[in-house]
Design a binder for these strands. Sequence first.
DNA 1: CCACTCTACCGTACTAAGTACGAGTCGGCT
DNA 2: AGCCGACTCGTACTTAGTACGGTAGAGTGG
Lengths: 235, 235
Amino acid sequence: MVHGVMPVPSDPTAPRPRLTRERVLGCALGVADAGGIASLTIRSLAAELGVKPMSVYHHVANKEAILDGIVDLVFAEMELVPHHADGSWRDQVVLRARATRHALRRHPWAMGLLESRGTPGPATLRHEEETIRILREAGFSVEMTAHASALLDSFVCGFAVQEAARHFGVTSTMPNDERGDSSPVDPETYPHLAEMAEKHMLRPGYDFGEEFQLGLDLILGALNRAAHAGHLPPS
Amino acid sequence: MVHGVMPVPSDPTAPRPRLTRERVLGCALGVADAGGIASLTIRSLAAELGVKPMSVYHHVANKEAILDGIVDLVFAEMELVPHHADGSWRDQVVLRARATRHALRRHPWAMGLLESRGTPGPATLRHEEETIRILREAGFSVEMTAHASALLDSFVCGFAVQEAARHFGVTSTMPNDERGDSSPVDPETYPHLAEMAEKHMLRPGYDFGEEFQLGLDLILGALNRAAHAGHLPPS
DNA sequence: CCACTCTACCGTACTAAGTACGAGTCGGCT
DNA sequence: AGCCGACTCGTACTTAGTACGGTAGAGTGG
């Protein structure tokens, strides 16, 4: 044998460029995206990396650390938008909100993990810092910034949850043309839900995602008004 | 022996009143609340029920069904508020939003489960039906109802996520009086976040929960205005 | 050039958890 | 009495996390 060390070197140049924490976390994110968070196991991850399970433990403490890591990777993904410091605060908030939503859409499991993780990673903190910075530098008071960021974060996170859990009820495209009585949404039991589904969602051009911009605009308009009034008016 | 069947009948009246699906799910909810969703295993559940693991499988198909079941139980908990059909639509929405938030606060793991569950249970559907009913009967158009419910649900869900994942950064009450450089929030790196923490949160009387009513009021005010205008104005 | 050692990787094996399979148990009904 | 169906459980297989110790190869000082 000329270089008889690697068992089956399909490519002489190392097909395994060495394991690092970054490679482990990046691959973990890929596995979670591909097959859902439940499919991310130490063994599946190791297989994807081309190593044996116990090898990953030299780069992460345990699976919890991996979950913390990929959640922070998702937040890091949100930072890739240009800062656009020249735009108005509304434009800046909209840009960040869109980036956040898109990242959470690419990784629907991320919101589900947030609850279990106690300590946020650096990217997560930078994300919060940035939101607060935009509002503060726009002239919002400390209190108003707290209210605004809580409201905006809640909306963006909640929207992501809705999108992740989105279920399409009613008969929809399912080929049960003969009265599916076990249909998810029974018009008898849930008349308004059925009406909403029939007359609005389920329509050819309907896209739930458009509700994001609508809701965001409404919140921003109200925040703008509240900021000018110096408080949060009752109506 | 008088009734020599039960091996160790510490109490002659059956200490195990028979297993039912309701008892299984109710107990599962209790276990999840007590020790977190991760502590809910078939074995821990069986132990709590006073039976052997395999016994629960005669009342639920598998663990997935248990998770579906307790999520629906949480939604069922939200229905316990009086309907107050005589109040204004705003009052009705506020009442329901508060009930939703409180239920999600009692069961912080619920939001994390939503993502994985594809098919909503009956209580979940009733919950959505009720929200839509309130808005429709208040005179909202179908489109406007869709926008409003998406916005409201997003806010309430998102707020619940924030509360569940709430972390208290900065040095706070931790006794690291000698420059905790590994402190969760470093004022050098996150100046605005640190300012926000120091000057607003972390204050004696601060309660993040109050942001809920504030945000809800702001959204409702904006919805009210948008409904009167017949559309969603840009500001 | 040779130990010595540190780093990265891996083999083995233990534990916990989900659950398939089939057997035992018990109350009621024919 | 004998059968039946609903309920419970014992056993055991499988997957997953990971503790523990081994090993190989790259340095490093003598």
